[in-house]
Nucleic acid binder design. Sequence first.
DNA 1: CTAAGTCACCTTTTT
DNA 2: GGTGACTTAG
Length: 707
Amino acid sequence: MDLSNLNQKQREAVTSIGGPMLVFAGAGSGKTRVLTYKIAYLIQEIGLDPKNILAVTFTNKAAQEMKSRVHNLINVPIDGISIGTFHSIGANILRKEIKILGYENNFSIYDQTDSRSLIKTIIKDLDLDLKMYDPKTAQIRISQAKNNMQSPDELLSSSYNRIEERYAEIYKIYVNRLNENNSVDFDDLLVLPIKIFQESEEKLIKYQDKFKYVLVDEYQDTNKPQFELIYSLTKIHNDIFVVGDDDQSIYGWRGADISNILNFNEAFDNSKVVKLEQNYRSTQNILSAAWSVVSKNSQRSDKQLWTENEKGDLISILESFNERNESSKILKNFLEVKKNNQDSKNSDFVVLYRTNAQSRVIEDEFRKAGIPYQIIGGVKFYDRKEVKDLIAYMRLIVNHNDSVSFDRIINFPPRGIGKTTLNKIHSLLDDKKILDVISDLSLLDVGKKQKKSINDFYNLIRLYSDKSKNQSPSLLINDLIHDLGLKEYYMNQNTTESNDRWLNIEECINSIADYELLNKDTRLSDYLQEVSLLTDIDSWNKQDDVLMMMTIHSAKGLEFPYVFVGGLEEGLFPIVRPFEDGDIEEERRLFYVALTRAHKKVFLSYAKSRRKFGGEPIKTAASRFINEIPKKLINLDFISFDESHTNVQHNSNISIGNIVEHKLFGKGKVVNIEGEGANSKITILFFNNERKKLIYKYANLTILKES
DNA sequence: CTAAGTCACCTTTTT
DNA sequence: GGTGACTTAG
């Protein structure tokens, strides 16, 4: 195999076979190349069968790309390889083995919304107050417990008050309900395979034997179950190869444990470490800026990127009056770069931001200018109501236990089944399948009309269930939509909104057809699994010449010649939450990730005031991260004040983050300010955890500490 | 039971 | 400025 495209370190990583290896791969150091060559090398030079390789990537898209790159390198079919995200690999294992745990292999995969609505039902069933026992909090607690691999009983015994105990109780019921619904949530996709391996030595050996070589990308963002999974799979043969960069660890908030990478050689005996420090992506100036920022972090492995690339442009700072102004400056600079670089394409540019909410204003500006763009993230296609409704039909057709989907569609489109009737159905549930409950309506005490429509619904689902055994998903869905009269339903409303909804249904039909084309002999359940694990980024077509907009989290692993980062303001990036020392080091790593996406040029932008929730503008200050970049790397010419807007009043000396005292309510922290001056409304989170909104001029606050 | 209208909370980040 | 939960009139 020709390895002349690799530098010496990369070659070492590729050719050193056997035993655990950790590759510290800095941003732009050829990490993907190393992984691709490694897989190709294992197949071609070592003679490993592709089906004995497990490769974990961070997105499904990355998996697809890796597969085709390896194929291009060695020209041998590698269809047998197991490659995908942790979640999709977990799902595939469960499809085959979940019977051991008392589920059927046609299980549904619940997303966050589905799982939250199940939790909500449970809290209501327990007659608990939804204000006191918040479904969202419960969901977070449960997810954390699962990611710590804590059982409901373990959570219960570690609870320190009544409320926490209740959450543990909700957790316990939730686990049972999922099981009764023959459904799993996202966390289960990681945790249940581990459980199978714990309970069945035979299965564990089977998979240890199958996955003779295990490779993991973005290792710095693995969490406890993910570590556990690969640890148990590789325990015997020890052939594990991981690639990562602790400086790019940005998923701590969802349980990713940076110590997985920092302590790799303690977990895996006799491991080797290779550091890739030569960067091929960015200019020297960008790298120096990135370095000056991330080196402020205390918890990091020792390494420093270097490059042979030219110094390049300085980093430009764009200062704006407000978020609208910011958007137009981004647009203006985009147009200018394009003008000065005639061969640059729209797709050479990306606009990054900390939160999805920031995209709207920027989007407006580019739409008005007629620049084609695509937004990744935000409200996902498969999260839309109409799409979820359709998916719920498919799920119930496949899985008759799925009560969450049942509840969703029993009265959609409206067929006269209300809350009362639904409650009566649920009271007959016991441990039956939800669909079987309505197979016999003699026990159900509801009106004639209701009975008729429930019965029609039952027959419809049964009919399509039978059809699904020998009809292709796309034909099936077309018929179903026709039978439900969905087109008429949306068209009759004849609003822009309902028209949009119908278009989304059509897009959904297309996506099924596409999926069918790419995957022979697809069953409905395959498509459903695909859909639940798909993210926006997976559907991004790189061929399209469009400018991209996305959060920095979504941009992980991507690169662009020109990068704009918007909203570099204290409180937004880095984001800070009252009474919680948010992880500033993780925010800094996020900023590092943002900078290192760029090949040629970075624009950092901030606004001096910004609206939140469409409310009054709030004064904002430039992000500390901007000040962490040495002045010599910054192009100050780009700082321009908007003269027309300089007469802003800023007479109140109170600002977000101040600790204040109120005569009546005591001490608290300012978390929000709406408006300016004496009439501004100050939101204060008092130390007794009460939140109050006060008018500044009446509140008579004493500022105890400036933030 | 439905549809239309009001309200509260929201925004970190995602598989 | 958007969503989902709750309310109220038919």
